[in-house]
Design a protein around this nucleic acid. Structure first.
Length: 804
DNA sequence: ATTCGTTCGGTTTTT
DNA sequence: CCGAACGAAT
């Protein structure tokens, strides 16, 4: 293998790739070729003689892992790439744990509880302990337990930690430690690990089994970790322990893009890395290849407002590009339609594809309106003609494997692999209904908890556990046990994943029940079950073509249980991408729309009370902006319908954080004192449609022409976002190049140059489509549907615009 | 035991 | 708005 791959790197990147003798931190700004460095680094390591199976590469998301694998495959071939130990933290260590589970008291075929499973278990424990679930909110407890695990505080450490106990007393939740202990206990009886356990137990394994640690330390001569700013303590420790022997490690990250502290990510892991690795060498990648200068400069000016960062200056040598456009909308509805129209307009102008667009939002719930607007292809025209739908694709939402019917089917499979999986058993013991009701399950539960065994053990041997139920009920339990045992036997006799899945679908009657009542929903549910069978089929097929006849159900489950919402397979075709900003990390798009940039949404209300909260939100916003290559569009609405009610909204403080010279504020104007209160009266909702009066400026707009001097805003907004002084937009003079009509191609036109459907750029109203030309009178009028200013009738002899 | 209807409450981001 | 949870009817 020649090493001409090094020529494909810039100086900084090349230096980072070539240094392989000790611990290395690569601070990689957004779009600076981080993945490129990682992939080439791995190629370089192979070139330098590291065997592929001695290299461990850890990423955060499956998407990132997949992408890196593909890139490396392209460079070194499938064979070699396949031998690399590469994947997400969770998937790599879940594999290790499969091998050594018994060393730490878990079965090899342990189950992985997803968030829903663990939530339901916590909830049940709270109930069983007779505690008030208003005080002990399951979601809060779950998050708390997760944090504890990420910090490696096990229940026995918890109970000895005076500080934690004290805090629980103060918050009036003294039972927290007991809930935590009970939860872990029940997981263990069920042979189940939750996501956090995968990391925690890896730490336990490496701590308690020095031979295992030694083995991995010796094996992995090089470790690479992506997105290190998002590691939690458990991950940090694992990496450190395994890398300690050879001390050859590359961690890549960008403190400015740390956005996962809510799940335990600790930015100090990267900021203090030199304390863990005294001979750490730091490399910086500061040239951004992705975005225009305007975008990078704007992003830089934003992130400067955060404190405590690793000094770096991201720069771009790309074109200056257009300024970031900030659009004010009256409602979420208008915003969605404005975005849809913009997409159509920009696509026509750039001649690009729908794939070049992404709409990013803070929370998934925002996607709904956007979907509607896109499906309608933007606003209907004057004659009520519906425009062609804009194709889109949503990441996130409920994933395939979380759908009720699919999860039901999966729970049968889980039970086959590990019958002690209580959560799975609970879910399907009476689905389809087989007369095993709540009271029976309660009795089984009591018996099981009393004897510290799984529900399955009680179901299989009711007498032993003195289960007091009627004969008829006993028979029903027996029938259920026989059903499941049948599948278990199939599995132990060597049936493959597909054979068992088919048997389960058939004999459990889950599909038959759905087809017994052919409502459209049920038909779709049954199709989803078929889809699951297909997935198993593909899995088996793929393994067999690769020459592996061993297509165990265990393997299928192990693979799918770590897939998440973000990992749906790509349906092909060019589509606009809709996703949360979190999901967009690591991706790039030619044109990006960031919507809902309002106080209490972005930054999220829950994050707004702490400085760290705000700083993380700001980093999130930074991530959003830096996804864009060419155009970045920001919008906010003054009124938004979210979670069942309409609320007034205020522009996000983050827009004020960006240096105004990189912004182009649309509809520049002073917001009025009661602008926010007024706009509600302009918005009616009927049948999902909004009626807006865009055409005439409001009295307030006319009155308030004088720019109010800027004052330091942070505290003011923090104190009271609704305070009128805070309803302030930038100085007029800073904004809008074409607003002043400075002869930049805006002129009057005669009718002949225009036709219906023409795109124009109006001096004042911006982009729009000509809907009609009225030559009936001496003064020709045109009716234009503006993307952001509604429909206007213009007198041709006066209107100043460009024809695009 | 099951099913249906009503009320109530919550509400970020993800492996 | 949506889902969970509870209560009442079969």
């Amino acid at each position: 293998m020649s090493n001409d791959y090094l020529d494909k790197l810039n100086e900084q990147q090349r230096a980072a790739v070539e240094y392989c003798d000790g611990p290395q931190l690569v601070i990689a700004g957004a779009g600076s070729g981080k993945t490129r460095v990682l992939t080439y680094k791995i190629v370089h390591l192979l070139h330098c003689g590291h065997a592929p199976w001695r290299i461990m590469a850890l990423t955060f998301t499956n998407k990132a892992a997949r992408e890196m694998r593909q890139r490396i495959e392209a460079l070194v071939g499938e064979q070699v790439a396949g031998s690399l130990q590469m994947g997400t933290f969770h998937s790599v260590f879940a594999r290790f744990l499969r091998v050594h589970a018994e060393r730490i008291g878990y079965p090899t075929n342990y189950t992985i509880y997803d968030t829903a499973d663990s939530r339901s278990l916590i909830k049940r424990i709270i109930k069983e302990m007779g505690l008030d679930d208003k005080v002990y909110r399951p979601a809060t407890l779950q998050a708390h337990i997760s944090n504890m695990k990420n910090a490696l505080i096990t229940p026995d450490l918890y109970i000895r930690n005076a500080e934690l106990l004290e805090a629980d007393q103060v918050s009036n939740r003294p039972e927290t430690a007991n809930i935590y202990a009970a939860y872990c206990n029940r997981c263990r009886i069920a042979g189940a690990m939750d996501f956090d356990d995968l990391l925690l137990n890896t730490c336990v394994l490496l701590r308690d089994c020095p031979d295992v640690l030694r083995n991995y330390q010796e094996r992995f001569t090089y470790i690479l970790v992506d997105e290190y700013q998002d590691t939690n303590f458990a991950q940090h420790l694992i990496v450190h322990q395994i890398s300690r022997l050879h001390n050859r490690i590359t961690v890549v990250g960008d403190d400015a893009q740390s956005i996962y502290s809510f799940r335990g990510a600790n930015i100090d892991n990267i900021l203090n890395l030199n304390k863990v690795y005294p001979d750490l060498r730091i490399f910086k990648l500061e040239q951004n290849y992705r975005s225009t200068k305007s975008i990078i400069n704007a992003a830089n000016s934003l992130i400067e407002k955060n404190e405590g960062q690793i000094a770096k200056h991201l720069f771009s040598e790309n074109d200056t590009g257009e300024r970031i456009r900030v659009t004010r909308c009256l409602s979420d509805y208008d915003e969605a339609y404005a975005v849809a129209n913009q997409i159509t307009a920009i696509k026509a102008r750039q001649g690009c594809s729908y794939e070049d667009f992404a709409i990013l939002y803070r929370v998934n719930a925002q996607s709904r309106v956007l979907e509607e607007a896109l499906s309608n292809g933007g606003r209907k025209d004057l004659h009520g003609n519906v425009r062609a739908a804009i194709p889109y694709r949503i990441y996130g939402g409920t994933s395939f494997y979380q759908r009720k019917e699919v999860k039901d089917a999966i729970c049968y499979l889980r039970l086959v692999v590990n019958p002690h999986d209580d959560e799975a058993l609970r879910r399907i013991i009476n689905y389809p209904t087989r007369g095993i009701g709540e009271s029976t399950i309660a009795k089984v539960t009591t018996a099981a908890t009393g004897a510290s065994v799984s529900l399955w053990q009680v179901v299989c041997d009711p007498e032993r556990y003195k289960l007091a139920v009627h004969k008829g009920t006993l028979a029903k339990l027996q029938a259920f046990a026989t059903l499941i045992q049948g599948f278990i036997d199939m599995n132990s006799q060597g049936a493959n994943a597909l054979e068992i899945t088919e048997a389960v679908i058939e004999r459990s009657r889950i599909k038959a029940v759905l087809l017994g009542d052919m409502t459209p929903e049920n038909i779709s549910r049954s199709e989803n079950i078929d889809e699951l069978a297909n997935a198993v089929h593909d899995f088996v097929d793929e393994k067999q073509t690769a020459g592996d006849e061993n297509c165990r159900l265990e393997d299928f489950l192990a693979e799918t249980s770590l897939l998440t919402d973000q990992d749906q397979s790509d349906p092909d075709g060019e589509k606009v991408t809709l996703m949360t900003v979190h999901a967009a990390k690591g991706l790039e798009f030619k044109n990006v729309f960031i919507v809902g940039v309002e106080e209490d949404l972005f930054p999220a209300a829950l994050s707004a009370d702490t400085l760290q909260g705000i700083e993380e939100e700001r980093r999130l916003f930074y991530v959003a902006i830096t996804r864009a290559k060419t155009l970045c569009n920001i919008s906010y609405a003054t009124s938004r319908y979210l979670n069942g009610s309409t609320k007034q909204c205020v522009i996000s403080r983050f827009i004020n954080d960006i240096d105004p010279k990189f912004l182009q504020m649309d509809e520049p104007k002073q917001l009025s004192w009661d602008d926010g209160f007024k706009s509600l009266s302009n918005v009616w909702r009927s049948g999902g449609k909004t009626f807006n009066d865009f055409s005439k400026p409001t009295a307030q707009e006319k009155i308030l022409k004088n720019p109010r001097p800027q004052e330091s805003s942070k505290e003011g907004i923090l104190k009271n976002p609704m305070h009128p002084l805070n309803l302030r937009v930038r100085d007029l003079r800073e904004i809008k190049p074409h607003e002043t009509g400075n002869g930049k191609g805006f002129s009057t036109h005669v009718g002949d140059e225009l036709s219906i459907g023409c795109r124009i750029n109006h001096q004042r109203f911006g982009l729009g489509t000509v809907m009609d030309i009225d030559k009936a009178t001496t003064d020709t009028k045109i009716i234009v549907d503006f993307d952001n200013a509604g429909t206007k009738t213009l007198l041709l002899k006066f209107a100043k615009f460009q024809i695009l």
